[in-house]
């Protein structure tokens, strides 16, 4: 890591600009909150309450997520990930991806850091789409709630169709991303290194 004060002038400037860009979204959201409070105080209060509730949820679930990402990063060797989840992993890779995805592990954004690490270590895009998709749509605890409120026919049919759909889009996205594998890699390096 290069120290801030050792950087050339233009790099410092660039970093400042990046800092601003990084915080652009939160700044816009904050402004929207102010506007909402001015025009509809009641909605502003309920929005703040929702934000606070999700804030609590997120900051309870995030520490283990990022630590797990770090552990995967330092412990699981590239060759292992490649053989489990990489290009040639075939049915085994598909089953591992689905198995990991259906574990009771929280909201989808939780899976992004792990997916990034696995991709970086050689997991195939197809398997990662499958992993994210099952994580999002086919988690076991979620399925139990779904059966309770929407019936077993609805839940199982959706489960089967979603699984089929995920295999198709996984294959398609894999195909579409093949060309710019390199830019993908750089993107991932940035998250961890910078």
């Amino acid at each position: 890591m290069i120290e801030q004060n050792k950087m050339p002038e233009n790099m410092v400037q660039k970093q400042k600009k990046n800092q601003f860009k990084r915080w652009l979204l939160p700044i816009i959201i904050a402004l929207l909150f102010v506007i909402l409070f001015i025009f509809d105080k009641e909605k502003g209060i309920s929005s703040s309450e929702v934000t606070w509730n999700y804030f609590k949820e997120m900051f309870i679930i995030l520490p283990p997520v990022f630590i797990l990402m770090g552990l995967i990063e330092v412990w699981l060797p590239k060759e292992k990930i490649q053989s489990w989840l990489g290009k040639g992993s075939g049915i085994k890779g598909i089953l591992i991806s689905i198995g990991l995805g259906t574990l009771p592990t929280g909201p989808l954004y939780v899976a992004f850091p792990m997916t990034a690490t696995l991709l970086k270590k050689g997991a195939s895009v197809k398997n990662m789409i499958l992993f994210l998709g099952t994580w999002a749509a086919l988690k076991i605890p979620q399925l139990i709630i779904e059966i309770e409120f929407l019936g077993i026919e609805f839940a199982l049919l959706r489960f089967g169709l979603t699984l089929g759909g995920l295999l198709i889009i996984g294959y398609l996205i894999d195909l579409l991303l093949k060309k710019d594998k390199e830019s993908q890699k750089i993107e991932l390096e940035k998250l961890i290194v910078n």
Partner: peptide, 10 residues
């Protein structure tokens, strides 16, 4: 977090 709050609040 803010975006979720805004959308669900409205």
């Amino acid at each position: 977090l803010g975006l979720v709050g805004l959308i669900l609040g409205i």
